[in-house]
Nucleic acid binder design. Structure first.
Length: 618
DNA sequence: GTAGGGTTAG
């Protein structure tokens, strides 16, 4: 075999001494911009014996720094051309390829590993962690198991780095049992192994088990470090267990652990998820350093608590402090906009996305589509959706739900069928949209068929909300008897929203007796809820039974049930204003009410019902 | 030259 690629010793010296054949080669290597140019330089250099190969490795690590391209195939091509490479060179090349953190390159590392085996090379303790890391990046369990077999065969089970990487691989591949097995059978373990073991449980949803393990270990005398605490606290956040969280926080304090940004972020997230936003904010303010993730944690955490306005002000503060938002920030903010109907802020975010060259794809694209749909700008939603190069079930679901709520039933359903044709599997939420479309479009037949398809075709078990959609569909179509029959045949206990649909239909059709029956059920389910009484009262009113309507109102008063004030919001110059019934908080509320009076007068010729008795208005 | 935090849709 000819053509073994390598550098001449002289060309290596080129950079440092004048004793060279071609003084420009080394300089060219350092300044080389393109892979092609670089490759041609390499192939021009002459042969090198493997005794000089450590020097060659140095060159290779230099290569990784001078070539910004993610295309590592040239490194692989160098690798394949070396006849008898030293293991250090292989490891260096592997590390270099792996550093780019993209899937294609991780695959390249595995390929290199296989080729090393074919060449009959003796792998060392540094090779296995690298290959296993590549498997982790790819979630490549099958290949990982083969590597595990080689690890055992070649006697590397005593190496901590190898063992820990093996455990990590099984963890990310969802094999908690294997993580445990490797741990239990390994004669070498350290704090890292223990952290990976706990993380294996936590990452796969066994939060309680992970936390229990932590206490078992610490009660046995183990001293946890910051990294282990981050894993355990994140498990606690998922468990929504405040008491436990406080206990862990105390552990951090009493053991004088370093309150770093990771630990801070984990604590902020935990307090937000456990329902203590005030404590979360205190911890957040106390953090010595914050990064973009700290802000994301705060913003998305507040959003999850439905504190959307507070989340937006956190976002504003973040910008005041000059922290650059990343894609996750924007997704969180867009989510707030969707819920507040804050179209202006949403549009601002869209502009920000465009100006910063952020791809409208994936999470960001989906959040943007959803924002426009929820803020009532369906045309914009469709425009963004149309421009997205790759659409997934979330993108489709957002527009389908959006169209359905905007009353564009046919268009929603057409998109649904288009989605199926492309081969995207719908999920439960997609069907909420599809059934809502049928309900709003009065498409009883199609609704029945699609409901049946859920399980028959897509193997999705209808949840209570789907039954709710069907009851709503039938009720709105005036088929109350069918709706009742549907409710009676439900496999689960109908909830308040389902009875609510029926009750609403009763009001429209003036079915007093059924309404009374349903109200009784509803009061038993949620006696404190105002909506039930109001619907019943309105049902009486709709058939002219005014005294009965009044009776219901009196009953409400007796039981101290107050109508929860409805809330609407409007956004002006990026500020969201909220209004409730009888709300006088706005500095110009006097003007606002005057305008309402005027408008009402204009529209109906009667005076607006300014205070109190709007129980009869749904 | 091993381990860690946050993420969209009804």
């Amino acid at each position: 075999m000819a053509c073994y690629l390598s550098f001449s010793v002289t060309s290596l010296n080129v950079g440092c001494t004048t004793n060279s054949q071609d003084p420009s080669v080394f300089h060219k290597l350092q300044t080389s911009k393109s892979t092609k140019q670089f490759n041609s330089l390499i192939t021009k250099t002459s042969s090198l014996q493997h005794t000089q190969q450590p020097l060659y490795a140095k060159i290779i690590s230099l290569c990784s720094s001078i070539i910004p391209s993610k295309d590592m195939s040239y490194i692989h091509s160098i690798f394949t051309q070396i006849h008898d490479p030293h293991i250090d060179i292989c490891n260096t090349l592997m590390r270099c390829v792996l550093s780019s953190k993209c899937k294609e390159n991780a695959l390249l590392v595995i390929l290199m590993y296989v080729e090393m085996m074919c060449k009959g090379l003796d792998l060392d303790k540094y090779t296995y962690p690298l290959v296993l890391k590549a498997c982790v990046q790819l979630r490549e369990l099958r290949q990982g198991r083969l590597v595990h077999a080689h690890v055992i065969k070649n006697g590397f089970v005593l190496d901590l780095y190898v063992v820990n990487n093996l455990m990590r691989l099984y963890g990310v591949c969802g094999c908690v049992g294997s993580v445990r097995k490797v741990f239990d059978r390994s004669p070498v373990r350290d704090l890292v192994s223990r952290t990976i073991l706990i993380q294996g449980y936590v990452d796969n949803g066994y939060w309680k088990e992970g936390v229990d393990l932590f206490f078992e270990m610490t009660e046995g005398g183990l001293r946890a470090d910051e990294r282990m605490m981050v894993v355990v606290i994140s498990a606690c956040a998922k468990l929504r267990d405040l008491r436990l969280g406080q206990k862990l926080h105390k552990y951090v304090q009493s053991h004088k652990l370093n309150f770093d940004v990771f630990l801070g972020n984990a604590l902020v997230d935990m307090y937000l998820k456990c329902g203590e936003p005030d404590v979360a904010l205190i911890v957040f303010r106390e953090m010595p350093t914050r990064n973009v993730i700290s802000w994301n944690t705060l913003i998305s955490g507040l959003a999850q608590r439905r504190e959307f306005k507070q989340a937006i002000s956190a976002f504003n503060e973040m910008q005041d402090q000059g922290v650059k938002p990343d894609e996750n920030t924007l997704v969180g903010v867009l989510n707030c906009c969707s819920n507040l109907g804050a179209l202006g802020i949403g549009k601002w975010v869209h502009t920000f996305i465009d100006r910063n060259g952020i791809q409208v794809a994936g999470f960001v694209g989906n959040a943007l589509v959803d924002m426009y749909a929820k803020c009532g700008s369906m045309d914009d939603a469709l425009r963004v959706f149309g421009r997205m190069r790759t659409k997934d079930v979330y993108s489709y679901t957002s527009v389908i739900v959006g169209l359905a709520t905007h009353g564009k039933a046919r268009k929603a359903l057409n998109l649904f069928y288009e989605m199926l044709e492309i081969g995207i599997q719908p999920n439960e939420v997609t069907f909420v949209g599809v059934l809502t479309a049928c309900s709003h479009g009065g498409l009883v037949e199609e609704g029945h068929k699609l409901f049946a398809d859920m399980w028959r075709v897509h193997k999705l078990k209808p949840r209570i909300e789907h039954y709710g959609c069907m009851v709503d569909l039938l009720s709105r179509a005036g088929l109350i008897d069918e709706a009742m029959e549907f409710v009676e045949h439900m496999p689960m206990e109908p909830d308040a929203s389902i009875w609510g649909s029926i009750l609403a239909a009763c009001r429209i059709q003036g079915k007093v007796e059924l309404a009374e029956h349903v109200t009784e059920i509803l009061v038993n389910i949620e006696s404190e809820k105002d909506g039930t009484y109001i619907l019943m009262s309105n049902t009486y009113a709709s058939v002219g039974k005014w005294s009965d309507a009044l009776e219901v109102r009196k009953a409400m008063k007796r039981q101290k049930i107050k109508k929860v004030p409805g809330c609407s919001s409007i956004e002006l110059d990026s500020v969201v204003y909220e209004f409730r019934r009888c709300d006088k908080a706005h500095p110009r509320s006097k003007d606002i009410y005057a305008m309402v009076e005027q408008l009402t007068l204009h529209l109906t010729g009667t005076e607006a019902l300014s205070n109190g008795s709007d129980y009869f208005i749904v």
